[in-house]
Design a protein around this nucleic acid. Structure first.
Lengths: 210, 210
DNA sequence: GTCTATAGCTGGATAGAC
DNA sequence: GTCTATCCAGCTATAGAC
């Protein structure tokens, strides 16, 4: 990718971070990128196409950066721990709240909807892979729809990123609460064989019920 | 509230639903309301103030409409069931995705941030009240930060509403997965006295560990 | 209170010099 | 490829008629 195209992509992300999706324009992006406004229409067809490209590029980079950590996850608690660390580390750069903003902007432009959908899908696939590795064969997998669970987890994180924008302390507290939920999951995971058998029985019964 | 003010509030919500936060303007709102554009500046100081007022009014109405259902909740599973029903019923009117859109727009305007924060807080308080009623005295309450949990649940629903905008089928699946989680919660809730005692011991240990 | 009209600005987009 | 200059649409906001 040419230098200017890259600057535009970076500038687009910076502009969304600073002004939100409702405050971005060709001019604010060009200013953030330090280049001329007309170049957006030369390199991309318009603002929305640039936003779509930036969204996909940024998400691909972040997902790739966390691939190793996801691969090392060995329990649901560790998965939540990776999510928490990811949130903390990306907060400064705002990479995740950008995705939330673009998701909101997807309401207006169809191509942006396609791009943000694909970007979010990258996170979902990563989470789904981990969940399959962790849960396949476990009692819970009998009733759990793992792809659905992966989507729920990913969507929840998006919501948290938006929430952080209006109440950082509250978002921190919410994240800490998820950690406590993870403790509960770990505890259930560590139940002795008797309790575990009881759990499995009840899960099977629930699964048959529907 | 005068008739025109009410029409403007309704129009603002309709415009956000249709165009997203990035696509609303005094003109699109006035068109949706069927009134003259200048009235926005007469009745409210500008677009952002109208959006803030609409956000608070709509949220207050929806929270009040669900107060009885929240009051009747007697288990975590029932709480999730209310959330699911709420999502289904509000989908057509789009009342919740409007809140998500305005939360995204809060990045741009400080007053809008204050209003959306207050609106989301209404939901959080409702959930928090239910969680206190259900969990106070239960083993899990020893490690759970209930206000944090209420914020996590509320933020997760906001994320789901945004997700619905780009992938309705995926959002449905995510919601169904939460239902399955609720089954798990119910099962743990229904564990026999032996397993329950083991659970409590482990939770206490985890609480001491921090 | 509501309308028309309009000032003044910002935005997307393109033409054309370099 | 990049810049300047510019067109025009749409936006906020106000003035003033009714």
């Amino acid at each position: 990718m040419s230098d200017t195209k890259q600057r535009l992509v970076d500038g687009a992300l910076a502009a969304v971070r600073e002004h939100g999706i409702a405050g971005v324009s060709a001019r604010t992006i060009a200013a953030a990128a330090g280049v001329n406004q007309a170049l957006i229409f030369y390199h991309f067809r318009g603002v929305d196409e640039l936003l779509a490209a930036a969204c996909l590029a940024a998400t691909r980079a972040r997902v790739a950066a966390y691939a190793d950590e996801f691969a090392d996850v060995r329990s649901l608690r560790e998965l939540l721990e990776v999510g928490r660390a990811l949130h903390e580390r990306e907060r400064a750069e705002g990479n995740l709240s950008v995705l939330a903003q673009l998701l909101a902007g997807a309401q207006r432009d169809e191509r942006l909807a396609a791009a943000t959908g694909a970007a979010l899908r990258l996170w979902v696939d990563e989470v789904e892979r981990v969940l399959h590795r962790l849960l396949d064969g476990a009692p819970f997998a009998e009733i759990a729809d793992i792809p659905g669970l992966a989507r729920a987890v990913s969507a929840a994180f998006i919501g948290l990123e938006l929430y952080e924008g209006i109440d950082a302390a509250g978002a921190d507290r919410a994240l800490a609460a998820l950690d406590q939920l993870a403790v509960l999951v770990e505890i259930v995971d560590d139940l002795g064989p008797v309790s575990r058998r009881a759990l499995r029985t009840r899960i099977s019964r629930a699964a048959r019920r529907g």
